[in-house]
Amino acid sequence: MSEKYEHYYVPDQSPWPIVGAVALFMMAFGAGHFVNDVTKDQSGYGGYLLLAGVATLIFMLVGWFRNVIDESMHGLYSKQLDRSYRQGMSWFIFSEVMFFAAFFGALFYARIIAIPWLDGASNNASTAAVLWPAFEAAWPLLKTPGGTETQSMPWQGLPLYNTLILLASSVTLQFAHIGLEQNKRGQLKLMLGLTILLGACFLYLQGVEYIHAYQDLGLKLDSGIYGNTFFLLTGFHGLHVTLGALFLLIVFLRIVLKNHFTAHKHFAFQAAAWYWHFVDVVWLCLFIFVYVL
């Protein structure tokens, strides 16, 4: 521990966590019913409950963060609390890494083990001969053992542009950070704005790519393990880009409208930046293992 000891800050009672718990309850309960309703083409209240849950969650996040920002702007926070927030954010990002790891694990398992074994690799020759005699192992898996066919998504073109866009956005974000630290507010605003714009471009192009996949390539969520891993990995990544971009947008608005953050005190900016770089690294892995290789 450091030289001089700081006093602790313990916040007052807060109504926001219980609102958040109710929101998650409505989302989970709503989604559970909604999924059944959609897949069976029946009407139900699930969807509405889910939406109400999302609305409550947004309400909670706005209220909770407003509290935290107020406390922070009033100088209630010590260095220690700042460290707590930073460490909390890093561990949260680590948990996100592990979430993606589950899906990458599924991808590698399918490519390295499941698909070759279905074609008789290892000691599975007779299994393949009896169960799926016509099946040939390949990646991307364009024809499943069950016979579903699809086409693969090439990495040249849109995915490559998207990689460059997202890489560029990490660079602009770094320049924004330098601007913040050197107190060049103009550079900060310009570069941060540019980062958000690049993120939005990425999401737009990803949408275009999905439409292309569904309409022209017949590559769908249910086109076998290739489509499964493709859409779940890129889909969850896209969701994270959306959240990261919103996070950056809020930071941007705080800078532009309220002139928040200083060269020395900018946890929210830092957290958003970490999150954005994390999302960027996930994309690089995606680009290599889902598209190129």
Partner: peptide, 16 residues
């Protein structure tokens, strides 16, 4: 619910 086959050999997945 959504037709993926992570754990279904017919789609190239594996229950294991």
């Amino acid at each position: 619910y959504f037709g993926t086959s992570f754990f279904d050999a017919a789609g190239g997945g594996d229950p294991v």
